[in-house]
């Protein structure tokens, strides 16, 4: 597997045919199964790797694509609660001590738990490679299961997260609490405006389309409205048109639709009880 790059610039100069090994929690499983048998380059120990979490003065946060999820989680403190909730239900402690956001993004699984919180956060990925550096919104990064816009030799160095609304969360529904792939997942962010109205609503769902998707119909049904039961019902109905789930070994398409509707209802329930409209009922 040698040579092992020890600086980011050395990674840029690697033969593009080499697969980059970060946490290895997916790559080494695929390798063991006989896939991805080509040469690897370990990027888990770069001397000039970015800090796991860097808080900028404008309120944005840069996340390292190469840091283990458990380190990101610890260093975030109270920030990015949606991402922290996703990390909390990500595989197991052993996996979180190795797996990285960069790997989770680059694998481009529609069920990747790290991705929906980054999608609702409007994160931007900072890529670099033999042709230099560029930025790409996380919403444009994955093009299908296992497919991304990474050019040969290109890799993710940082994930930039702009300042966030007050409310954020993540809900995963899976066969068990640990070490399970999401049947569906939902991430959300919003603020509360005058009269309890939801503003800046963003929803992203995992495992209900070929890539993690925003849910524009459900977002529009909620935007600017106080979340009454009728508003929630309208958002849930609209959500059904935002997604295109399939039936597979984990669940049927119908189950996925019902589970995601339940996740959205659950996400809105705390907002519902706070809403002025609710107090009069």
């Amino acid at each position: 597997m040698s040579p092992h790059p020890r600086t980011a610039a050395e990674v840029d100069r690697l033969d593009p045919a080499r697969a980059l090994l970060a946490g290895g929690t997916d790559l080494l499983v695929r390798r063991r199964a006989g896939h991805q048998g080509g040469p690897l380059a370990d990027v888990s120990r770069l001397r000039d790797a970015p800090a796991p979490v860097r808080r900028l003065s404008d309120g944005s946060i840069w996340l390292s694509a190469l840091a283990p999820l458990s380190v990101i989680d610890r260093e975030l403190g109270g920030k990015l609660p949606g991402l922290r909730a996703a990390i909390a239900c990500f595989a197991s402690g052993q996996i979180r001590n190795r797996a990285t956001l960069g790997g989770n993004l680059a694998n481009a699984s529609p069920a990747a738990d790290g991705v929906p919180p980054l999608v609702v956060a409007g994160a931007v990925l900072r890529l670099r490679g033999p042709a230099g550096r560029r930025e790409i919104p996380v919403t444009e990064f994955a093009t299908g299961p296992g497919r991304t816009r990474l050019a040969p030799g290109e890799w993710i160095e940082n994930i930039d997260v702009p300042p966030q609304p007050a409310h954020a969360g993540f809900r995963k529904i899976a066969g068990r609490r640990a070490l399970a792939i999401s049947i569906v997942s939902l991430a959300w962010t919003w603020d509360r405006g005058p009269g309890g109205a939801l503003t800046g609503v963003r929803l992203a769902a995992g495992a209900v389309a070929p890539v993690v998707v925003r849910c524009p119909g459900a977002e529009a049904a909620l935007e600017g409205r106080a979340p009454t039961p009728d508003v929630v019902a309208a958002a849930v109905a609209a959500l059904g048109h935002d997604i295109s789930p399939i039936s597979d070994l984990r669940a049927s398409a119908g189950y996925r639709r019902a589970a995601l509707a339940g996740a959205l209802t659950e996400a809105l329930t705390p907002a519902l009880t706070e809403a002025p409209a609710r107090r009069n009922t």
Binding site: M1, L21, T25, L28, V29, L40, D42, Q94, I95, R98
Partner: peptide
């Protein structure tokens, strides 16, 4: 910290 030693290469 706990890791799965089946998913770590010696070089890492």
């Amino acid at each position: 910290v706990p890791v799965c030693s089946c998913l770590v290469l010696v070089c890492q």
